[in-house]
Design a protein around this nucleic acid. Sequence first.
DNA 1: TGTGCTTATCGTCAGAAAGACGACTATCAT
DNA 2: ATGATAGTCGTCTTTCTGACGATAAGCACA
Lengths: 262, 262
Amino acid sequence: MSRYDPSAFPPFAVTVDLVVLTVREHALCALLVRRGEPPFQGYWALPGGFVRPDEGLAEAASRELSEETGLRAHPTPGQGADGAVADGVHVVGAQAAGAHLEQLATYGHPQRDPRMRVVSVAHLALAPDLPTPRPGGDASSARWAPAGELIGQNPADGVPLAFDHGRILADGVERARSKIEYSSLATAFCPPEFTVGELRQVYEAVWGVALDPRNFHRKVTGTPGFLVPTGGTTTRQGGRPAQLFKAGGATVLNPPMLRPEA
Amino acid sequence: MSRYDPSAFPPFAVTVDLVVLTVREHALCALLVRRGEPPFQGYWALPGGFVRPDEGLAEAASRELSEETGLRAHPTPGQGADGAVADGVHVVGAQAAGAHLEQLATYGHPQRDPRMRVVSVAHLALAPDLPTPRPGGDASSARWAPAGELIGQNPADGVPLAFDHGRILADGVERARSKIEYSSLATAFCPPEFTVGELRQVYEAVWGVALDPRNFHRKVTGTPGFLVPTGGTTTRQGGRPAQLFKAGGATVLNPPMLRPEA
DNA sequence: TGTGCTTATCGTCAGAAAGACGACTATCAT
DNA sequence: ATGATAGTCGTCTTTCTGACGATAAGCACA
């Protein structure tokens, strides 16, 4: 600790903001809410809110996620200190659809909120395709927005987000893009049982590239612990019936699924 | 935002804690300071301190690093919002030795500090081997402690750290271990000019494994943008003179340097 | 009842990458 | 000179990857 007087510590407000990502219609989408009050009234923003006095950070993020999406939080028990870099928390909804929640980064520029000094601990949530979100909290509406349009190279792609949420969203998308390379996190975008083709569409949507179905199939089925066959099949993608899989125990992929380079 | 009343936002103290890592004598070491006052008086802790009212998070971390190690902060200009996931800040010392500073994670368990509600934004700093640290702030002394002994599987390896700093340190070490796989960050542990053998010793110390010198040499010299020869040679490692290199422009390694598995 | 369309899955082949390891080089200590 | 130490270049084998041919098994529809 420094010599700065701790008894007169400056008060900060601490919030959590959520980058909630899903894959719908072959596109990576982020959950946005419209702000109903100043500042940035009428702007789209990330869902979030204040951390309560007796609430941990992951707990607050889980509560906000539940309020905004209806996903019921199901924190991993015995997790120890929250905010850990270690693997995230699992969240289940009414249909027992799995979701993933992890801390992303913390944003604390002194002027990021014009009202007061706010430090926001951003979290990243990955969810399977959900029904249209029901607005919650003091947001007047909510929607899924294609992430590509929000973080595109040209900022003219749409209305900018409130506060520094554009930056937070970009960081969250980049985290998701890189993390599905070396972890089994892509399965968090899938329903409990899914086909190899559905998993491939997740990778294609998140990375924005086309992958060879044959090589992809060989790779994911050959990575130990990634996929476990359930025995069932489905034809919901059309064509020949496909084997159904669920996520295996592995959280780290070896070898990793490397993104095709330029 | 939620319906929680923002006008009565609960006050938090916000601190930065630093995981400062270096490689000395073939071992990964972390900078610790001894606490001179309660709570945890006499315990070893990570350096850190309160974020000041008009200071960004990276700025506070940079200031604390300077206070504790004498490294002069040199924040990347035009960085935009602090706390970004994007690449970190560069720090230079008196000898122009480069260092690396990036945000690690944020720890905010309600009871992590018995005095009050404190949210700590941990940062990770990677530095070349520095002279013995000069104690700064209200720490009565400081030392480099081998990281392996602090985060070993058996917690009997030494006195536990104050607060949740053991967990933070473990998270920082794991971040460093995984990040040198796919980024050129290992060069942050090296002096401005270094040999392939010195870089290999960094990987060996951080990962705690032995690497084949011949394959390592082939790999790092074959990765585009990783190393740039300076033209000079040195014999400071003994044996045949070795070529000197400096870090190349690449921040992301393609292909990555994968850690040998089990 | 085919025919065609779609997606799944298996196989083949060439090139790249990685691990194991031999061989040679250039300096220093004695 | 001799040995010790460390750097650097090659070789060989195995594994991984990307490109792509071929077959399988459903569905829609004539």
